[in-house]
């Protein structure tokens, strides 16, 4: 069965200007991401991984080429349109967790739902449900400073998936985690993919993530040098 294409990039370039210096971060990237993919973009530092994620995440616009995310061409999307797309249909997980320090775990998760305009009862119930699903219910009232790195990243994942986005983008999500926490987080995300059909795209150079990924896209110097779907993924889906 053909799965719907969520992300389609064709000859995507991204050039940064620093004074008179031009840096070409992406040099004609072609990529398709299908629903349910659990894919990792790997490559050395400066290869363009984060730039590609930022473009797919509607945080930035390509300098040239065509990029369509969840059926919307990025070129024609306004700033407000991009914000709306991020709010309603994308989830983000960052390397440094980036939870709001003055809010509790529950409030961090609830905040996204409040921004979406959901009512108090609905958002409280949805936030509690996702924390329960990720085994964080007992930590709901704690602030980030009262949580370990692994717990914080799980809260960040809860925040990213609470509104059931179709696509979750994770930038080096395990970079600050030890082995056990990284494994646990990845298993958790795979579970979410399997249960809810969410699509995950990671940027990473962590071999543990690569091991879990169903597909590995390698970037070097702004170009895709390999794109391999693994035959033996840990779950039946790739």
């Amino acid at each position: 069965m053909n799965k719907p294409i969520l992300v389609s990039a064709s000859r995507v370039r991204k050039v940064f200007h620093t004074g008179s210096v031009e840096v070409e971060a992406l040099r004609g990237v072609d990529l398709e991401l299908k629903e349910g993919d659990f894919a990792a973009v790997v490559g050395p530092s400066g290869s363009g991984k984060s730039t590609l994620l930022n473009l797919i995440g509607a945080l930035d616009s390509p300098s040239s080429g065509e990029l369509t995310v969840l059926g919307r061409p990025m070129a024609g999307l306004s700033k407000a349109g991009r914000a709306q797309l991020r709010l309603k249909e994308l989830g983000f997980v960052f390397q440094a967790y980036n939870l709001v320090p003055v809010l509790t775990a529950l409030e961090n998760v609830e905040f996204v739902l409040e921004l979406q305009g959901r009512g108090p009862a609905e958002r409280r119930s949805m936030a509690r449900q996702v924390l329960r699903e990720l085994g964080l219910e007992s930590l709901a009232g704690r602030r980030p400073s009262q949580l370990s790195g692994g717990q914080q990243q799980r809260v960040a994942v809860a925040r990213a998936v609470v509104s059931r986005p179709r696509l979750v983008l994770a930038d080096e999500p395990t970079a600050n985690l030890d082995g056990a926490n990284a494994e646990s987080l990845l298993s958790l995300m795979r579970g979410l993919r399997d249960r809810h059909g969410m699509t995950f795209l990671f940027s990473t150079h962590d071999p543990r993530v690569i091991r879990h990924a169903g597909r590995v896209v390698t970037l070097a110097d702004g170009r895709i040098t390999s794109d391999a779907a693994k035959r033996k993924a840990r779950s039946g889906r790739t």
């Binding site: 914000a83 709306q84 797309l85 991020r86 709010l87 309603k88 983000f92 960052f94 980036n98 905040f111």
Partner: peptide, 16 residues
């Protein structure tokens, strides 16, 4: 700055 960037990445609009 970083906090506002993250909030913006999560979809928080200028008005909010």
């Amino acid at each position: 700055r970083r906090e506002f960037a993250v909030l913006s990445a999560l979809g928080m609009r200028g008005g909010s």
